[in-house]
Amino acid sequence: MLHYATEILPSLLSGAWMTVRIFFWTLIAAIPLGILVSLGLTANFKPLRWLLKFYVWLMRGTPLLLQLIFVFYGLPIIGVIFQRYDAALFAFILNYTAYFAEIFRGGFQAIPNGQYESARVLRLTRSQTLLRIVIPQVVKIVVPSIGNEVINLIKDSSLVYVIGLGDLLRAGNVATARDVTLLPLVLVGIIYLLMTAVATFILRRVEQHYRSWR
């Protein structure tokens, strides 16, 4: 059995690598974009607000699976053609940005107006106020909710099978179907658990970092 496990492990790990890549790049792009969209959601300019509200509604209101299919099979109809991997990243970033934007919007609303006013009488500019005063406080507030989404993202990445990408779960499925044993899927489960354990550990450290002030 151990021999079999070492035999299929390379294909599982290469699947896991796809999972990690999608996870990593989605976070790198969607968190800053989420902050920007959340600022837009609270902007004074109404058309922008409506547009972003519509976008968030669309992304949160339909399954990510459906969005993946539309990006890869639907967009080519209007001449936008993505490679499979790019299509997956595009759909994931679009989807997760919407969730992060809502989380950050809540965080921004929790900052009292007095913080902006005291920054203003100290003559800080709008961007200095955001970067030095407001965003650090918002980040502290949103870390637990962001953590939830981060864990979800690891598991959601398995949806990329629908556009023919080989991720961890798919690698396990292939081995299970070929060798008629559930062992590959058990290994898949263990690898997912390891990945979420690492993410959980890092998130705890981030929370601890922000615990030095209240």
Binding site: Q115, L122, R123, L124, Q128, P136, Q137, K140, W213
Partner: peptide, 19 residues
């Protein structure tokens, strides 16, 4: 309305440095 994320020293010296 002190800035909770900054120490006393940083609360005081932030604006003189930036502004």
């Amino acid at each position: 309305q002190l800035f909770p994320n900054l120490t006393v020293k940083d609360n005081i010296t932030l604006a003189p440095q930036l502004v």
